[in-house]
């Protein structure tokens, strides 16, 4: 599973890095994101809704993003 560390980085950087990482994956594959910007969870949910992918909060500042469709 691909890991992205965006701790200390402000939005939209965690969302941009997640989107870039997910481009290289196949549907069903996941990315593990570490990010502590307070907007991350809200923006990641909105991003998932807008792009048709899936996200879930694993723990504080930890997110699992799963690619749901072919680009």
């Amino acid at each position: 599973m691909k890991e992205i560390n965006c701790l200390g980085k402000r939005c939209p950087v965690p969302i941009i890095e997640t989107a870039n990482a997910i481009k290289e994956l196949h549907p069903g594959d996941s990315v593990h994101l570490l990010a502590d910007d307070p907007a991350t969870e809200i923006d990641l949910r909105a991003w998932a809704r807008m792009t048709g992918n899936h996200m879930k909060v694993v723990a504080l500042n930890e997110f699992l993003i799963t690619k749901s469709k072919v680009d």
Binding site: C11, I15, P38, I42
Partner: peptide
């Protein structure tokens, strides 16, 4: 958030589940 004094994302957009950046 980057334009707010407290650097917090808009609570209105957040409550609606909309993109804040």
């Amino acid at each position: 958030a980057c334009t707010a004094e407290d650097l917090q994302p808009s609570h209105v957009l957040a409550a609606m589940g909309l993109l804040t950046h």
